[in-house]
Design a protein around this nucleic acid. Structure first.
Length: 882
DNA sequence: CGTATCACG
DNA sequence: ACGTACGTGATACGG
């Protein structure tokens, strides 16, 4: 019987690890211990690709042994002048070697030799035995080893894609045979390895010569061919260099490699080692992949499929302990999503069904609505809204896994239970994308797969609660969770359900008016440009403005000319077409985003829009709003502001109310910095920007402050809140850098504790790795240690800004919870939150009460050393509530 | 699916 | 010398 065909995979360890390091952003890949893992991750990606292609029977990874090799003895400057290997990469060598071992691949190095020589020697031995060899490297020079049995796979910039070089491919691509690569290098040298070839012979000329003469030596046999040319002289003078270069470039295929091919079988993944390795470095996606590959025996999922005849089984649950519940809605928009099924249970008792009607039967309904029985869920708000559609009032939540995960680390803001579970060490849950598919292929899978998936989710919620709660306690975040985030989830759910009424007639009338205005401006622009083009395409617009019409280029983007407002505004003075483009943009934006966009999402049944607040997304603790976003409805321009006329009360004889915190972020700053001067100004109800102007411009009293000075001071106050720099301030206000710098210095003199606060937050971020708000909401800032100036500066500004923006977010959340309780006996309804502003609707009869009650509740939400101020407006539409 | 632009606090 | 203001979402374009 013929012996089994052997396939050998040889890995150029050093080369691949370097390539991976520079291909993937180092700071995107850091584990909990702060160790970079980008090269390790990239290396593993390469392994996946190569193992899949080659399916090796033998495998070895070769590494350089050190700086001193036989080549440095020949030529001391060999590889001289290279930058030292970055620390972040050196750290990863032990990881990569452990990874290789866990994946069943031996690592090998040899004193005095480079990885290339080990690979050259072993591939030669393999050829003699008739083995197929694949060499994976990032170094082109190794293509000199190509033969009919040996392929060189060169990894490209993206780590996992490779280009396979066979003998034919080398000839095709380089125009010479593999063995002639060293001849080319003999003539041209190698800059990166720091040895010269022949003066004035570069890559192209060297190839031409070798194509003609076959080898470097043969070029020297025919020196006469070059008589009379400069090149002859160079060839003669640099002959020694050329011969040395050839020696340096030639891979030693007879090196004293001690390991035998029979000693490097490819063993395949060593599952236990690999799991512990992936856990140590934090490769969650690989753990999930391993899990889904079926290579790990996952815990048995035992469940009972429930039907209407067997609801009695639920009585076996211990209702003194929390019951875990999961409601499956495959679409992101839970106001509209169909229901796919549900799970209810605890510990080792799980009941699952696709029959949603069962939820309205007892004892399930009773359990969900009970104020005595604790429930565990993933995303309380989503679950509440879903159940509300079925007429069930979810109450008494103990553990919301999504919310807790977000509070523990705002960076982990995935909404997928499988991914969140993996972050907390449970790798047995598939992501929804894996189960339902994505894009056009999305569908509900077969019952067995679906039900198992749902049960596995509920089990993860059940299994992770203790561990995640204990972390919450360690972080001192229990109050934040139980008294702010969890209650506000329900407040938000009820606001979303309430929705806000939209008068589509108003929008449709605006649509007609603006469409006509847009086509007028459009034809003006075409006339002024002398041709038709797509005004909405920055590329085409740039061509017209900066090439055809020769307007001065003020700013560029990565891809071409910038045509953003600040650029166009600078050009508007000299050009009518630019004014028209600005007008066109403004109207087009209102039409597409606000008129058409809103009309698309108004529910036909109740004439309302029901936004969804994302409670676990932002890094600061703010909410965001989607589908539609009601936190960015226009207000700054008269044309845009008219959109607000479409937002009206849901009943005749009602009003829309707006309650605004005035300068809440500056007040928070005054409070948490403890700056007496700023506190005093707020206590005395001064115009804060005027007071700032008085201070930085050395005026006697606020009465001396001109509108222009006040405007500049206001900009400085904004800058302070954002984590100021002179550069940022000058850029944003148009004042000189020097002037901006002097403003900031004076500001810090006048408000000394603000400066102390800023420095203190940056220090905290350095020492602890995070900053926090007044309610202990945390934001981790790994980039604070970055060596990259840009990234580090950003982390520093974030350290200053997050406690301010985040504490303001805490305050309004507290106010919302209190507000809901305060109006529970009124008809008034809270509808929207826009960061520092709450929108209500209420009957005329409640105007007086509400306009007193809301500000009182909002300004007493928390106790600060600074008063909070709330302004009130109301009217027949949101537009009129001004 | 990434980039540019622009809407809000 | 370096060279960014903080936090979001929706839309249109174009590869």
């Amino acid at each position: 019987m013929a012996e089994k065909k052997q396939r050998l995979l040889l890995i150029d360890g050093n080369s691949i690890i370097y390539k991976a390091f520079f291909a993937l952003p180092a700071n995107r890949f850091t584990n909990d211990k702060g160790i970079h893992t980008n090269a390790t991750y990239g290396f593993n990606r390469m392994l996946d690709t190569m193992l899949d292609i080659v399916k090796p029977t033998l495998a070895l990874a070769a590494f350089d042994a050190g700086k001193i090799t036989f080549r440095t003895k020949m030529y001391s400057d060999y590889k001289g002048g290279r930058k030292p290997t970055p620390d972040e990469l050196i750290q990863q060598f032990p990881y990569v070697k452990r990874l290789l071992k866990a994946r069943g691949i031996k690592s090998y190095q040899l004193n005095n030799y480079e990885a290339d020589d080990i690979i050259g020697t072993l591939s030669k031995r393999a050829e003699k035995l008739g083995y197929e060899t694949t060499i994976v490297t990032g170094d082109r020079d190794l293509t000199q080893l190509c033969s009919n049995l040996t392929t060189v796979s060169l990894s490209k910039t993206g780590v996992s894609s490779v280009e396979h070089f066979t003998t034919e491919h080398v000839i095709d691509k380089f125009g010479i045979k593999p063995s002639q690569i060293v001849d080319v290098k003999a003539l041209r040298g190698d800059n990166s390895d720091n040895y010269p070839g022949v003066t004035l012979i570069g890559h192209k000329k060297a190839i031409k010569l070798i194509q003609k003469y076959g080898s470097m030596e043969n070029v020297y046999q025919h020196l006469d061919d070059f008589s009379g040319k400069k090149m002859q002289q160079h060839l003669i003078e640099d002959k020694d260099k050329a011969y040395l270069a050839k020696k340096l470039a030639t891979i030693d295929r007879q090196s004293p490699v001690t390991i035998k091919l029979s000693q490097v079988p490819y063993l395949g993944d060593q599952i236990d080692q690999l799991i512990s390795f992936y856990k140590d470095v934090g490769f969650h996606s690989y753990l999930m992949q391993l899990n889904n590959s079926g290579k790990i025996s996952s815990p048995k999922i035992k469940y009972t499929q429930l039907d209407s005849k067997h609801l009695k089984l639920i009585d076996h649950l211990n209702l003194d302990k929390p019951v875990t519940f999961y409601l499956a809605m495959p679409e992101p928009n839970y106001h509209l999503s169909p229901f796919a099924g549900f799970v209810i249970g605890q510990e080792d008792k799980w009941f699952v069904s696709k029959d949603i009607d069962l939820l309205n039967s007892n004892p399930i309904k009773h359990i969900l609505e009970s104020n005595q029985i604790f429930k565990n869920v993933f995303d309380a708000k989503r679950t509440y809204v879903g159940l509300n559609r079925l007429g069930i009032k979810l109450a008494h939540i103990n553990f919301d896994m999504l919310l807790v995960s977000y509070l523990l680390n705002t960076n982990d803001n995935s909404n997928d239970l499988g991914k969140v579970a993996a972050k907390h060490g449970d790798f047995n849950i598939k992501s929804d994308e894996q189960v339902y598919g994505k894009g056009a292929k999305r569908s509900i899978p077969d019952d067995e797969i679906l039900l198992k998936h749902l049960v596995s989710k509920a089990m993860a919620i059940n299994n992770l609660q203790d561990q995640m709660f204990s972390q919450l306690k360690t972080n001192n975040q229990e109050k934040l969770y139980r008294q702010i985030e969890l209650p506000v989830a329900f407040t938000l759910a009820r606001m979303e359900i309430a929705g806000i009424t939209v008068d589509t007639n108003v929008l449709n009338q605006m649509k007609n008016k603006y469409t006509e205005r847009l086509s007028q401006v459009e034809s003006d622009i075409y006339n002024q440009a002398g041709e038709k083009f797509n005004i909405g395409s920055p590329k085409q617009l740039g061509k017209i403005l900066f090439e055809k019409l020769q307007l001065p280029v003020i700013k560029r983007t990565k891809t071409g000319y910038s045509t953003s407002v600040d650029v166009l505004e600078k050009l508007a003075g000299e050009s009518k077409i630019v004014q028209n483009v600005l007008e066109y943009r403004k109207i087009a934006k209102i039409l597409s985003t606000y008129i058409d966009g809103l009309l698309k999402v108004v529910h036909s049944t109740d004439h309302k829009v029901h936004t969804r607040y994302l409670q676990t997304l932002t890094q600061t603790g703010r909410l965001s709003s989607v589908d539609p976003n009601l936190q960015n409805i226009p207000v700054r321009t008269p044309e845009g502001k008219k959109i607000r006329k479409a937002f009206i009360p849901s009943h005749k004889g009602w009003e829309i109310f707006s309650f605004d915190y005035s300068q809440i972020e500056l007040r928070v700053l005054a409070a948490i910095s403890g700056d007496r001067n700023m506190q005093k100004e707020f206590a005395e109800n001064d115009d804060i920007h005027a007071s700032t102007a008085r201070r930085i411009f050395n005026l006697k009293s606020n009465a001396d402050v001109t509108p222009n000075l006040r405007r500049q001071a206001k900009a400085v106050n904004f800058g302070i809140v954002y984590g100021i720099s002179a550069f940022g301030l000058s850029r944003n206000t148009g004042i000189s850098r020097a002037r901006a710098k002097s403003f900031i210095e004076k500001y810090f003199q006048e408000y000394p504790n603000v400066k102390k606060y800023m420095n203190g937050e940056v220090d905290k971020a350095h020492k602890l790795g995070y900053v926090e708000t007044i309610s202990h909401r945390r934001r981790y800032l790994p980039d604070i240690h970055s060596k990259n100036f840009h990234q580090r500066s950003f982390a520093e500004r974030t350290a200053m800004n997050t406690p301010i923006q985040g504490s303001a977010a805490d305050i309004i959340k507290i106010a919302m919870i209190k507000m809901e309780r305060a109006i529970q006996n009124m008809s008034a309804t809270m509808l929207l939150q826009i960061h520092d502003e709450l929108i209500f609707e209420a009957p005329d009869s409640e105007i007086e009460e509400l306009t007193k009650l809301v500000p009182k509740t909002m300004d007493s939400a928390v106790k600060l050393d600074v008063p909070l101020k709330v302004s009130v407006n109301y009217g027949k539409s949101w537009y009129d509530a001004k």
